[in-house]
């Protein structure tokens, strides 16, 4: 790997717009739309769960992508990229050995210490499982530090399920509820229904339960209604929001929700901090 950022006359020692180059180690097709990428950086990313990176292919462009692996000491970074546009289409064509640019990590992320001794419910809709995996991994790695863990993961059809092997292996340690909206005539060993459905059945102690929530904008309203019905305090609900981002550092303005920048104070928010911010969830 050979990246040189020549020192110029800048009065600032660090240029926040310069990507570091990373080598693709593995690309796996997860679904028709999503691919899993494992890349190797020149130094550990040093991220917190829930943070994101700006991933780029030089000459094509750059986009925010959630980190999908827990914090780690080595130089590995894992991500899920959905083919949803010009740039991600190019990412989907990349092969192991090719290089991508990485900036970050950016955003607030989750603080593991906030979750110690708490019961944790993860609720993921579709691609929302990718960022939540960065929190599920460290939580499951130290079971003694946390209470009961429940993972609810939903998607539209069995063909769209992400991280099936991970979900199955997690189910040996903690309660995992896998759902699809419809089976679409495909084999399916989980439940059929929306991610909101199992919430009413969970054994929850509102005093010690923390919920981590990530999914498409339409999902939040209904899940939050269910959590209200279970009297989970809003200070114990964390939501992971999606916005368009061009810089990752609170400059370009695209991710601004009222006075907060999703790339700075977010994308993970404690729900009581944003519930009165219009435009945050819809």
């Amino acid at each position: 790997m050979n990246v040189t950022a020549s020192a110029s006359d800048t009065t600032l020692d660090k240029n926040l717009y310069l990507p570091r180059m990373a080598t693709i180690l593995a690309v796996e097709e997860m679904t028709a739309r999503e691919k899993f990428f494992r890349v190797e950086l020149s130094q550990p990313l040093g991220h917190r769960p829930g943070q994101f990176v700006m991933l780029s292919r030089l000459g094509i462009g750059e986009a925010p992508i959630s980190v999908s692996c827990g914090p780690r000491d080595d130089t590995i970074l894992e991500m899920v990229v959905r083919n949803a546009g010009s740039l991600t289409q190019v990412f989907h064509g990349l092969q192991p050995g090719q290089k991508v640019g990485v900036r970050g990590p950016f955003g607030s992320g989750f603080d593991l210490a906030d979750l110690y001794d708490k019961d944790i419910v993860f609720i993921a809709g579709g691609l929302g499982l990718a960022p939540l995996r960065s929190l599920i991994q460290p939580v499951l790695a130290q079971p003694d530090r946390f209470g009961t863990v429940t993972i609810i993961s939903g998607c539209r059809t069995p063909a769209e399920e992400l991280y099936r092997a991970d979900l199955q292996s997690w189910s040996h340690k903690v309660k995992v509820i896998r759902l699809v909206d419809k089976t679409a005539n495909l084999p399916w060993d989980g439940q059929v229904g929306l991610v909101t459905a199992p919430i009413a059945q969970l054994d929850l102690d509102p005093g010690r339960t923390v919920v981590a929530l990530c999914g498409p904008p339409v999902m939040y309203k209904f899940v939050l209604m269910e959590l209200d019905a279970r009297r989970i305090p809003h200070s114990q609900i964390f939501v992971d929001l999606e916005r368009r981002m061009k810089c990752g550092v609170g400059k370009c303005g695209h991710c601004q929700i009222n006075h907060v920048y999703c790339c700075q104070e977010g994308p993970v928010y404690r729900f009581d901090h944003i519930e009165h911010l219009p435009e945050a969830l819809q």
């Binding site: 950022a5 800048t10 080598t23």
Partner: peptide
């Protein structure tokens, strides 16, 4: 322009463009 790059194979040289 924020930076210019030159790729040699998969390696890349990235140079910031800063107007001083």
């Amino acid at each position: 322009v924020l930076f210019q790059y030159r790729r040699e194979g998969e390696d890349a040289v990235v140079e910031p463009v800063v107007d001083a």
